[in-house]
Each structure stands twice: as C-alpha cells, then as structure tokens.
Design a protein around this nucleic acid. Structure first.
Lengths: 340, 340
DNA sequence: TTGAAAGCGGTACCAT
DNA sequence: ATGGTACCGCTTTCAA
C-alpha cells in the first residue's frame, strides 16, 4: 500500500488514440502497424515505436468497434439452450470449435435459456454473427432463419430432427434409430416391445421421434409397442423393475445406453433374466455398456464430424448464394452384443 | 423465379435510421421508443408507428454498436478450451448460464483452443466482457488477469486448482480428493496403492494434483504409491489387467468412476477379486458406479452451485472495488460401497 | 414531444 | 511514409 497503484488501477481502458499519442503518430498509423496492412508501407522505426507503445499501455483492440466498422464479424454462433446430451455430447462440439477456429472464426456459444424460438433468434441476430449453427437444442423456425439472414448472417445451419426452411438443414431423423431397434428385436422374435421415455428436459424431442420409429417399423408387423416413462434415478428404475412382469414385455429399448444400464441392473436385481425373459437394448454405443454382463446391445449412430460441419459452415459463408437445402445425415446400425 | 425476390434478398440489414425514415421520425425517437426510455415521453401514436416500422423491416438492434456507445457490455465470458469433463460437466455450466441470464448477463462461451494463456486473455479482452469466469480449463496467469482488468472487465473469477493473483479465486484443491482416498485406503489396511493417470487432454492437471494428494497422505505412513497411465479404452484396460499381478498392488484409485468401471471390469475378467485381492475406488459419485457388482466406492466432490457462482459474479461486477482473494472451496468425502 | 448532433473505437480512403 | 477524416449503428445530451 506504500506505492499507490492508483494510476494503473484507475486509468480507463487504452484506445488506439492513446497508443498513437504515446508513439507520436496518428491513429491511422497505429491501425496500419498493428494490422500489418500490406497496402501501405510504414518505416521500421515507426513500427517499433507503435508496437512498444501498444505493449506499454497494454492495448487490446475493441472487437465491437472493429466489426462495427468492418460491417461484418467472423462470429459463428452456437446457440445452446442446454448443454447437449446424447450423441452431440462433448467431443463433437469441441471438435467443431477447434475446426472453426482453424478457419479463423470466433466461436461463441450463446446460451438462450428461457427464450422461445423467435425471441432467441432475435437475440442471436443482435450479435450479427456471420453464421449460426443450431445443434437442434432450440427449435429454429423459418421465421427465425429469416431474421438471422436479414441481420446479415451468411449461413444458417441446423443439425437436428427436422428440415428448417431457408437453412442448410442436416437432418438426423431419429426415427431411424427406432426403426433399426424394431427391426432387430422383431428379427430376434420379440413381439411385445417396451420403449423407455426419459423424463429429462433435453431428451423429450428425440425420444419421441425414436418411439415413432419403433412404432412405424414394429406395429405393421403385428408387434405391440408400449412407451414407459422413466426418470434417471435408481429408485425409479427399481420401482419399474418391481412391476415389470405385469407389463408382459419381452423386450425393451431404453433410449440410450445410460438408461439401458440403469434399467438392466434393476431388472437383474429383480430376478429377471436378460436376454431370455426380457431383451434390453440401448443406443450410442458407449464404452461402459460393454462392461456390463451381459454386454449391452446398442445402436451406433453415425454423426457428422465437427471437422466436416466446420467446412460446411465455411463453404456456406463464402458462397452465400448457394441454395440452402435438406441433407439426410443419419445412419444407424444395431450393434448386437449379449443383452438381446 | 417468376416473382423475383431480389428486393428482399439483396436489401442490406436495416438500421434504426431505416426505421426512423419509414416511421417518419428521427433516429433519436426510434431509440427512445424501442428502449422504453422513461426519461422522455413519446406520444402513443408515434410509439405505434415506430414499432410497426421496426416490425415491418425486421429491425434488430446491433449489439456491438450499442455496447460501443454505452462503453460497456453485459457479456460474461466463459472461456472453454475444451468442453469440461469431470466434476464441472454439463449440468453445472447449464445452471451457471441460466442463473447469469436471469441476472441479465449475456453469457458467451468462447473457445480458445490452441491459444496459450496470455494470447487467450488478449483474445478474450477484445470482446470487452464485464466479467470473465475461468472454469480452470485454461491456465490464467496474473498477467492475463491484468490484461482483462485493464480492458474493462469488472470481475475475473477463477474456479480451479490454484490461486490466481488479482482474481477472485475459488480454489478447489484437487489434492484433497487424493488425500481422502489415501486415508480411506490406509484405513482399510491397504499399503500398496496404484493411481490411474488418465491420458486424456483435459484431465492431466487435476489427475496430477490428485496423485500428489494421495502421495502426501499415504507415503509418510509407509505406504507406496504408484502412478499408472491408462487410456480410456477397453484394450488398454485389458492389457493392464493382464500384467496386474506383477504390479503387486492391493488397491487402486482410478481417477474417476468412468475409469474405475473400465478398470474394474477388466480386473474381474482377469480373475482378480475385488475388493479382496485389489480394492478399487473412483470419484464423482456417478450413478452408473452403483450399478456394478461390487458397487463402486467413490469420492463425492462438493461443487459450488452455478446459482451461487452467478451471484458471486454479480456481486463482483457491482462492487469492482471489492478485493479479490482466495477462497477455499472443495469438500470431498469418501462414499464407501463394496469395491473397497 | 421531437430533432440535431456529438461521439464511442476502429479502419480505410485520399491527401500530403 | 504518414496524417486527416469520414463513417460504421446506436445512445444521449441539448435545443427547439
């Protein structure tokens, strides 16, 4: 406290004008130097003075001012209503971020919890992103796409269950997952199929699509399909297992591997034989599923890579004239192990 | 193609000036109306005209211009070098985002993969966030904190293994996790302790701290501690299990529950009795650990809630004079089940 | 009640 | 090789 750091604490944030003043040059020169503008030649001594001044003041350019002047940003907006769960989890977003950054985009994950579709789109548009990549967490409407495009977004990509008009839609039809499950179970002679419906927020949409897929593939062939709500909770699973035999099912699709593991353990504890009495299948091919006994059958879901998606974004940005359209994306194969 | 949509496709993004023109008022009035400025009274008919004009043009304000003029933003930056794994996963960030949004902050997750500490801090500073909350993914140096503060950040919080000078540091000393594990294992009579070291990127720092904690608590009491690298991969686990008996260990701490499950299964398959021949313990108290047999012992780690952290941010922003300091945060208790 | 105008921090054109 | 300056879109005094 003896040497009052007042000065450094109080002084307001340095601008390019401050740098110019300290270096004894104009703001223009500062800009030229710090951006290595090639169209203009600045003498080496001047460059040094400017650099040193900037360093001394701890100057950091103001992104907002820059993109305001430039008339565009390199922000790619990734709306995230919830942290993704399921197939989009973790590594994928990581990969996408990394790939976009390599292409010199600034990735901004923008949380829009509690905003409905169109309000969210407006909020996103305020940031004037050059592209928006909606990972299916939020329902983006054609109107929302319009708002974004009109606000200057060169590209709007969606990755989700449905086609969104005006956007480059990578459609992952979750029904396919259900369909593969149904085919597999029927193939193995099961006719009374339960489908676990997670009670978690972010899983409702996709679980319903998957259920629909099971229905469409199973019911025409005379099988019965029964949705069964379940919370991700040991007690709930135990309770369900307790009344399991009353349900009279011979197979169950448990949405994903986590739920499948939870349920399978509860069923085993209740003395129900797997797969003989009830077959169990999950989805996502998580490593942990292989650790159970019997080993968990599952559905492997092909995902687009983050790298690939980043390239799509970049291409769409560079060629805004390209006609947005629908692209089917999802592949799914059953990986049979021992639980079916 | 018959009705050329040229006009709507080509017209550039509408500004408040466009709205003003269409409504037949000045830009000032537009601003007053759309921001419900209470200091000034605008007649109802005028308000309506402005609103309708804005609606018709699909006007969305330009966040950068606004915050440039205002001289500050309400951006809270959450740097994410990698998607968090471990205790910080998913739900926590979700909660934090939600709570910050309720406090009217704009949460921006900014990926800074491939930038070193100070370069990253400069990149973050360009966005002129009002606060930065570093979740320990990236090493934030005191210099970095300085850069951020000088760029106008009212608050810099860190949540991680170490105190960072100048920041509000919530210190989670990962050594405590290791210490609890060591106490527990020694208590149960184990003396030759293996510690699994994950080979994953984001886990290196914390796993090393945890190892240090085990060492500090175990070695003075005559136990031996041996780090064992392991990839998250079935083959690697199997290979390790194959040479397990050569290691001569009677207990193993497997970093977290995922690794513990992987290893435990491999050990069981290799015919090694758990917990008799080798005790296994994980961390994070994941539900899945309870589903194995024997049930997995683990360490429950107390985390600050997102809600709480959001309040800390808000308080720090409103009272920038508050002296940043260190706050110990982590609590950890062993949850003994059947694997130890 | 409304409008004119200054200015936030950069960039880039046009002079010099 | 550098400097002057207009302008990006918005807010906010100050005047009318």
């Amino acid at each position: 406290m003896s040497q009052t750091p007042r000065q450094s604490a109080e002084r307001s944030v340095p601008t390019s004008a401050d740098v110019a003043r300290l270096a004894g040059v104009s703001r223009a020169t500062v800009s030229y130097v710090l951006n290595n503008t090639s169209a203009v030649r600045i003498s080496e001594p001047t460059r040094r003075r400017v650099r040193e001044a900037a360093e001394e003041l701890g100057y950091v350019p103001h992104a907002a001012a820059r993109s305001l002047r430039a008339g565009h940003s390199r922000i790619v907006l990734l709306p995230t209503a919830h942290i993704p769960v399921g197939p989009l989890c973790g590594r994928f977003i990581d990969e996408l971020q990394w790939a976009l950054r390599r292409l010199d985009y600034t990735v901004v994950q923008y949380g829009s919890l509690g905003l409905d579709g169109d309000a969210a789109a407006r909020a996103w548009a305020e940031l004037r992103p050059v592209a928006v990549v909606s990972l299916g967490e939020t329902a983006l409407s054609p109107r929302g796409v319009g708002v974004l495009k009109r606000s200057g977004a060169k590209a709007v990509l969606t990755l989700g269950p449905q086609y969104v008009q005006g956007a480059h839609s990578l459609v992952m039809d979750q029904r396919q997952v259900g369909a593969r499950v149904a085919e597999h179970l029927l193939d193995r002679g099961h006719r009374r199929i339960g489908v676990i419906m997670p009670e978690e927020q972010g899983l409702v949409l996709s679980s319903e699509r998957r259920l629909a897929g099971v229905r469409e593939s199973a019911e025409p062939l005379g099988a019965t399909v029964r949705p069964i709500p379940l919370a991700y909770d040991e007690g709930a699973a135990e309770a369900l297992a307790g009344r399991w035999r009353d349900l009279g099912l011979d197979a169950v699709y448990a949405y994903n591997d986590e739920y499948a593991m939870l349920l399978m353990r509860a069923l085993q504890d209740a003395g129900i034989g797997i797969p003989d009495e009830t077959a169990v299948i999950g989805a996502d091919d998580r490593l942990l599923g292989r650790l159970l006994r019997p080993r968990l059958s599952t559905v492997r879901i092909d995902m687009v890579t983050g790298q690939h998606l980043a390239e799509l974004v970049d291409r769409a940005v560079r060629d805004p004239g390209g006609i947005p359209g629908r692209q089917e994306l999802m592949g799914a194969q059953v990986v049979r192990r021992e639980s079916t």
